[in-house]
């Protein structure tokens, strides 16, 4: 299989998968448990989700390891099982996709706040990130995606921890921004310019944004990233902002809407388009069709 970075250099637009949490919920899993524990208890459901995204045309399939760092698993007293949980997650996706898609190890925030603002020492974040990344790499991921970050220090510690184990494994790094009257900032006050600079410096080959907003806002975010970096960009938008109906979250952006707006992401120079909260295989299939139609148009 041609490497992901080669394909991006060649100008290919790559479609990534959509939401994991939304899909776990759709498969009826109880949500008061650690989602990563399902890698051990319900592998068949994760197999099914990976298949659905593969069949929808995604070429990057993420592992169910967003909260798979020992620091995060510790909240459920599962940190002892870090290696097993991450290894199983990779094995499940690999068995589905073989070499028809890239297996991306998902790495989310630790949920801790770093010194001096909080109580967590940077070494603890670094060690936690290394332990998860080691398990993911040993199990054979093609790349790792550090995502939904709001603290630039935590993001760069994660990137460096991964690169310390394997300088060659591609790292995607994405942060989540809020729109304020003064522009886009993460919850921790990081601008897009700062994110682009620091993620790049830490060694992420692909950078961008995920979560937070629907696709229209993400087009603005992509354009601002493009103004500050030459690195390939990834954007994974939510299917809009959730509205609560009968106590359930409903994401209103349709597959067709997201796919149509996805053209503007391509025009903004984004190389990888996937989805975050509320997106489903139907959204990814629509984005796939849009991307394929671009190729035919040329």
């Amino acid at each position: 299989m041609q490497s992901l970075l080669d394909r991006i250099r060649h100008g290919d637009i790559i479609v990534a998968d959509g939401a994991m949490g939304t899909m776990l919920f759709r498969h009826g899993l109880p949500t008061d448990q650690c989602p990563e524990s399902y890698n051990l208890s319900h592998p068949e459901i994760l197999t099914s989700i990976a298949s659905e995204y593969l069949n929808a045309g995604a070429e990057i399939i993420q592992t169910n390891t967003f909260g798979g760092s020992p620091l995060k698993l510790d909240k459920y007293d599962l940190d002892q099982q870090t290696e097993e949980i991450n290894r199983r997650a990779v094995e499940i996706v690999r068995a589905v996709v073989d070499d028809r898609a890239y297996v991306s190890g998902s790495v989310g925030p630790s949920g801790r706040i770093l010194i001096p603002y909080g109580e967590t020492a940077p070494e603890r974040i670094y060690e936690s990130a290394q332990r998860q990344a080691r398990a993911l790499i040993e199990a054979g991921v093609d790349l790792i995606c550090v995502e939904t970050m709001t603290d630039i220090t935590e993001a760069t510690l994660n990137i460096k921890a991964i690169k310390s184990l394997s300088p060659d494994i591609p790292v995607m790094a994405t942060m989540t921004f809020d729109r304020t009257p003064r522009g886009f900032f993460t919850m921790m006050g990081v601008t897009i310019e700062k994110a682009a600079q620091e993620l790049e410096k830490a060694g992420a080959e692909i950078i961008g944004s995920n979560c937070g907003y629907g696709i229209e806002m993400m087009i603005k975010i992509a354009l601002e990233f493009r103004a500050h970096t030459q690195r390939p960009l990834i954007i994974q938008a939510n299917a809009g902002l959730p509205e609560i109906e009968d106590g359930q979250p409903v994401y209103k952006e349709t597959p067709e809407f997201m796919a149509e707006k996805g053209r503007e992401l391509v025009a903004a120079g984004v190389s990888i388009i996937g989805g975050c909260c509320g997106t489903t295989p139907e959204h990814i299939a629509a984005i796939r069709r849009m991307v394929d139609s671009l190729a035919t148009d040329q």
Binding site: I113, G118, G189
Partner: peptide, 15 residues
């Protein structure tokens, strides 16, 4: 509230 400062600044002020 006005986004002039962010969570880290609030956490430091709280300390």
């Amino acid at each position: 509230k006005n986004h002039d400062i962010f969570l880290p600044d609030v956490l430091m002020a709280a300390k």
